[in-house]
């Protein structure tokens, strides 16, 4: 496969992975990638506001973005490995890990604008993975929330 074909195949696999969940569309979260690293983007919309007096994004939505970013990074790593191994991965239904627990720290109130998030897989285990996730708005160095969680892997 030529390099542009390979990239198109990866992009198509990422779209299938991230756009199949109705809830992703409901809150408006999408992903872009640089190589194997994903960045989530929650597109601002009025219905994401939790407290209109401030106004601030609902903490549950920020938490959801963090959880989704972890799940998508883990599922993407799995897909990537299988694609690199020459499997026709990404054509069947996505294999998703399951969240065991998630601890969210809220650092700043979420302003009514887009939110970005990236996950770091601290340990990619056969059964359980440990992931840290950060979300930010205007500046990467001023995160609005951070989380860590354990995830049960599809074959675990």
């Amino acid at each position: 496969m030529s390099e542009p074909e390979e990239e198109a195949r990866r992009d198509a696999a990422l779209e299938r992975l991230t756009l199949t969940s109705p809830y992703h569309r409901f809150i408006g979260v999408g992903f872009t990638r640089m190589g194997d690293e994903l960045t989530g983007r929650l597109a601002y919309s009025g219905h994401l506001i939790g407290n209109p007096a401030i106004p601030a994004l609902h903490g549950g939505v920020t938490g959801a973005l963090l959880e989704i970013t972890a799940l998508m990074q883990l599922a993407w790593d799995d897909l990537w490995r299988r694609m690199e191994a020459g499997e026709a991965a990404g054509e069947g239904p996505p294999r998703l890990p399951k969240t065991i627990d998630l601890t969210i720290d809220y650092l700043r109130s979420g302003r009514p604008r887009d939110v970005f998030a990236r996950a770091t897989v601290l340990k990619a285990g056969r059964r359980v993975s440990n992931v840290r996730i950060e979300a930010w708005q205007d500046a990467r160095g001023r995160p609005i929330a951070a989380a860590h969680g354990h995830f049960l892997m599809p074959d675990g």
Binding site: S21, Y23, I27, G50, H58, G59, G60, V61, G63, A64, L65, E67, I68, T99, L102, I104
Partner: peptide, 13 residues
């Protein structure tokens, strides 16, 4: 199954 994000949101609220 309903997404975990909804579970987080209802518990936070």
């Amino acid at each position: 199954v309903i997404h975990g994000g909804v579970v987080t949101t209802i518990l936070d609220t």
